[in-house]
Nucleic acid binder design. Sequence first.
DNA 1: CTGAAATATATGCATGTACACACACTAGGT
DNA 2: ACCTAGTGTGTGTACATGCATATATTTCAG
Lengths: 149, 149
Amino acid sequence: MGVTQGVEQQAPAGDGHPVVTAWRMITASHAAAFAALEHELGDRHGLGVSEFEVLERLAEHPAHKYRAQELAAAVHLSQSATSRLIDRLARHGLVERCLCDMDRRGIYVTITEAGQQRHAEAAPTHRDVLAQVLPAELLEPLCACSPAV
Amino acid sequence: MGVTQGVEQQAPAGDGHPVVTAWRMITASHAAAFAALEHELGDRHGLGVSEFEVLERLAEHPAHKYRAQELAAAVHLSQSATSRLIDRLARHGLVERCLCDMDRRGIYVTITEAGQQRHAEAAPTHRDVLAQVLPAELLEPLCACSPAV
DNA sequence: CTGAAATATATGCATGTACACACACTAGGT
DNA sequence: ACCTAGTGTGTGTACATGCATATATTTCAG
């Protein structure tokens, strides 16, 4: 298949700037892992990547409860995309909008029993896919500087 | 802005699995850099991230020439998305579809003078944004294992 | 040489996302 | 109390993306 796939193309990424090389490694890893996750989580558990991420944050949280805004930040989506993501999850009974008080503008999103179960089923797939797709050369250095996330 | 942004939330990412922690670092870096690039490249040069990446690959290439398929792989987009991306760039006169021979199914995408100029203008912005957004803790380890890209 | 399978690209369609805006509510000054 | 500014979510709309498919071309078996 690959013609011109050999070792030639020596043009160093982005004029040879290290930041550009790093950026390309990030995009490559992200694209590969995201595609694999989307495929496997979708096929085996009927979940998208963002759906799973939200469930995971909720499952992790001591009170299984998050403000919509915090979820948006956690999964790196816009506020509007998060609102519709919550819609989809709620429509499937995996989370609930809890119009809790204290600030009656905001909502709390809580994970349901079904949601926790779905997450528990999908979590191993999630980890396995990541372990398989993320190159070991990436994992070590990333874990080394993991404090900030 | 960040309420609950402190050090509390000690639930280790994804049940404490290192791959999940690494994945979250990747998604965080990717989202931050992508958003910043989209904003700056769009505002200052009228280019999206994918548009710029395509121009950069073409500018780097010794013959300024790529098969559509190779571009798709390089920028991690689907074949159809790449086709339309080429449409947009061609509509603005930054690239040209070269129905070159040898395999009359395929096309070569070539960068125009205007395209090279636009890339030259935008490249510094690209590098600056990345340098500013990508955390130094990430850059060093990533550069260390940079051979494969 | 003929026809079937494979390959490269374009396109119809459904969906997810961001932006702009609307609405509900809170907070602070007067 | 009232009125204005600020904050948290939901919604209309435009657009980019992926999947399935259509079309053109090459390749290969017979």
